[in-house]
Design a protein around this nucleic acid. Structure first.
Lengths: 312, 312
DNA sequence: CATGGGTATAAATTTAAACTATAAAAATAT
DNA sequence: ATATTTTTATAGTTTAAATTTATACCCATG
């Protein structure tokens, strides 16, 4: 049994196809066929059921795959140890970011990060929280930036900052004239909320429903984009809550509709999250360091009330 | 990097000597030399400082060794998974047993175990608790039977039985005429205790001192053997406590000196302990099953008060 | 029953691991 | 100091393993 063979097993388990897996491994398909056969023979078990299309894992096969992932993860940490020893922060790093954080946060830190850690090849992808969780678990993402806590046993979290929510209250809304508003002013009935599932924690108010529910299914919003939210709000479909960083570069005219909360302001916890195996921790450290650095200047709020994303 | 290379690293780290490590790995010494060189070159670090005699690990080397152990452990679990799948319980299994449990427990279960699981090649060694902990941690023992709880983060415990202590009170001792005695009758001053570090838990009585302290260093006892303890007790050096199983095959004459405790009787927890990585769990299951089976007939006590070994 | 989308096998090639023999270096003994 | 022993490194060879190319085979589907 070799680490290479285990990598082949993982690739085939993932793609359910020897040919595609072979490509991903940069070898030819017969190599996989023979190596898997050798491993199966050595262990005297069958890992893949080639009878089914697409290929399926046998019962033992599934257990082997899980364990193979552990072994490969542990093996990859050898390189981490070496990198750490050399003070080397580099290599490919796949980072996921949720849509409502991406456009505001990325421009703030990306340039500085590249300058400070030029050897890291960042591959950034916009993904939903759910996709992020899947991909961190299966090792396709090295880390991600998302609203937390997720309370997922496979995933570790390190808070980066607390981003207050700012109420966006359009003309003619019952709260428009009020200067500072408080959480108790909110009413579920006239709130437009982001699709990506935030809810107030600890049952202060349970706003876990998406705004879809409030408009009788006349239409559906897929994007969960803040821009759309503002526009819908302007159409007098209700008020909404905007993450603070999104309010910084709004048009002056729209800014008139912003109402800050009385402190403690509701806020979301934004964290860098990563697999509990802690691979590439140096790069995670580097990202955390750069992001907390740039954010310190941008978010001055202190007294906030954290809102947690919907766990699932 | 191959699993084989990592095994070589571990062997050299253990023996601090290429030649000896090569023997243990069943290869020649040049194989180790070249493979280690290859690995060091691949990682571009030095693992072993060959300058020192005996060979020493470099700083990174030590970290690599720790991680190599993890990888190798995880890799070994593949075979466990396969064995479990096949319902196969076999292979070499190294079991440690502490001296005060060995002579009474081993004869009770060994024959039955060999009959029930003939494919397991048991290698049993009598070791102190301290040696056991070291060897479970470094993987030289698969499991051990010892008094628990140990509260060691690397080691898991599964209680097998609770073995009551029986007071052995020689002629002329102040308690000799008393029929049933209670814990409160005990006095630290006239107690002979086993060397292997038992102490009453939760400060009911703190008997953590060995009997050495009570006889003014006129002599030292190395063996910690029960036989010796009884003989010393007969020499009127004090009473002592014997594990229940040891009292079963005593000479009738000596049995007259036994005094059972009022319930709840003090007792020691005897567990099968193993590394938290849970390698060879099927065999551990098998041992547990056989031992609890034979013990059920032998120990009828229920109401006991557990005494815990000295946590170093 | 031909075609496409796969996996398996055969044979040759390349690469890597292991061995034998021996050199080189360091420690120990004479 | 010099020989002897112990230990690691290197060279050259052999053996074994991984990979490749080419092709056979399988089976679902048009």
């Amino acid at each position: 049994m070799t680490i290479t063979q285990l990598n082949y097993v993982l690739a085939i388990a993932e793609h359910k196809n020897f040919t595609k897996a072979a490509e991903k491994c940069f070898v030819t398909q017969p190599t996989l066929s023979t190596q898997i056969q050798k491993l199966e023979e050595e262990l005297d078990i069958i890992i893949f059921d080639r009878g089914k299309k697409p290929i399926e894992l046998t019962d033992v096969g599934s257990k082997i795959v899980l364990q193979a992932q552990n072994i490969v993860n542990e093996a990859n940490r050898i390189q981490d140890i070496v990198d750490q020893q050399k003070g080397f922060v580099g290599g490919e790093f796949k980072l996921g970011i949720i849509p409502t954080i991406m456009p505001t946060l990325l421009p703030m830190f990306l340039k500085l990060f590249i300058k400070r850690f030029p050897k890291v090849k960042l591959k950034i992808e916009e993904l939903t929280t759910e996709e992020i969780i899947t991909r961190i678990k299966d090792g396709h993402l090295d880390a991600a930036i998302a609203a937390t806590p997720l309370e997922n046993e496979h995933i570790k979290e390190r808070p980066l900052y607390y981003e207050p929510f700012v109420a966006y209250v359009p003309q003619n809304h019952r709260l428009h004239e009020k200067n500072k508003i408080s959480v108790s002013d909110l009413e579920i009935g006239d709130m437009l909320l982001l699709e990506d599932g935030h809810c107030f924690r600890d049952g202060v108010i349970n706003l876990c429903k998406t705004f879809k529910d409030h408009i009788d299914d006349n239409f559906q919003l897929e994007s969960g984009s803040i821009e759309t939210l503002i526009k819908l709000s302007n159409e007098e479909l209700g008020m909404t809550l905007l993450p603070y960083l999104h309010t910084l570069d709004m048009k002056e005219k729209l800014k008139d509709n912003l109402h800050y909360f009385e402190e403690p302001s509701p806020a979301r916890e934004v964290s860098i999250i990563y697999h509990k195996s802690e691979l590439k921790l140096q790069i995670i450290d580097a990202l955390q360091q750069v992001i907390t650095g740039v954010i310190r200047g941008a978010i001055a709020f202190h007294n906030v009330n954290i809102i947690s994303p919907l766990a699932k």
